[in-house]
């Protein structure tokens, strides 16, 4: 049950040296652009850029391969699903129909469809690295400070910090509880029938929830006793000051963002259409 989870990877790289706030903003602009655009040229650019940035970050592929594999499988399935559900989506979007080789039903393989699915796949691929890099290159204790820096109320920012702080503890609780219940003969494996497994799941949910509610109470008190929420604003011990590199990064990213939107929408449509 020690599931691999994505977490901070200690390195000394230009990306690591950027402040969390910068990375967070870049992440938002990046995924924003990648979400809006459907322009193949832009997507291609983003894709290559993200590979480059990834290189700079000195994070090894091996360290995140478990996620990558997962994503690729997901994308493959998604593409299949799209084709099954709507094999002519591309035709609808691009308005032309070049059949490569005909198939029964409306399952003709068309250039447009392939092109459309290439785009959607690239789209998901380009969103990925930004978020991924943000997680693995930002120390969790800087996370909250960053949120607060970009305008999120410090109370909410801090609850994010709390979540990150207590995920490992709660995972440990969870395992302990699961073990305790298994020892009493409650089977959590896939063997049982669904209703039985729901009951068994409850045997874990209840202890987990009640320990968590206790936690909420004690932590609330501990925080109150140390003056949390006293002032309108709050400073952060592990926040890092903006440096020149941060402004540069933001500038570049902003530029890319605007450009990508211009290129995408100058022809009043999100889609780049090579067929007309």
């Amino acid at each position: 049950m020690t599931a691999k989870m994505l977490s901070y990877i200690e390195r000394d790289s230009p990306i690591h040296r950027l402040t969390g706030a910068t990375k967070l903003l870049c992440f938002f602009m990046w995924s924003g652009a990648a979400m809006l655009t459907y322009d193949t040229r832009v997507l291609a650019f983003f894709f290559l850029a993200s590979v480059a940035v990834f290189k700079i970050s000195k994070v090894r592929v091996a360290e995140i391969s478990f996620i990558l594999i997962f994503i690729l499988v997901f994308l493959a399935l998604n593409d299949i699903a799209i084709y099954l559900f709507s094999p002519q989506e591309g035709v609808k979007i691009y308005g032309t129909k070049h059949v490569l080789f005909p198939l029964p039903g409306h399952y003709d393989v068309t250039l447009e469809q392939l092109f459309y699915q290439l785009n959607i796949t690239m789209k998901y691929l380009t969103v990925l690295p930004a978020a991924l890099l943000f997680i693995v290159t930002t120390h969790p204790s800087e996370f909250a400070a960053s949120l607060n820096r970009i305008g999120v109320s410090y109370r909410i920012a801090f609850s994010v910090a709390l979540a990150l702080r207590y995920i490992p503890d709660i995972q440990r609780d969870f395992r302990t509880i699961a073990h305790a219940q298994q020892a009493r003969g409650i089977d959590l494996s896939r063997k049982e029938k669904l209703p039985k497994r729901v009951k068994n799941a409850l045997a874990i949910l209840f202890p987990l929830i009640f320990t968590s509610l206790d936690r909420i109470e004690t932590i609330t008190n501990a925080m109150a006793l140390r003056g949390f929420g006293k002032k309108k604003r709050r400073t952060w011990y592990s926040a890092r000051p903006f440096a020149r590199r941060d402004y540069i990064a933001l500038g570049v990213m902003g530029l890319i963002f605007v450009l990508s939107l211009l290129i995408t929408f100058h022809d009043k449509t999100r889609f780049y259409n090579p067929f007309s």
Binding site: M223, G227, F228, R233, R234, T235, P241
Partner: peptide, 12 residues
């Protein structure tokens, strides 16, 4: 350790 000071808004 800094928690209480953060809440007081002390400069870093």
């Amino acid at each position: 350790i800094a928690f209480a000071l953060e809440n007081d808004g002390l400069p870093q």
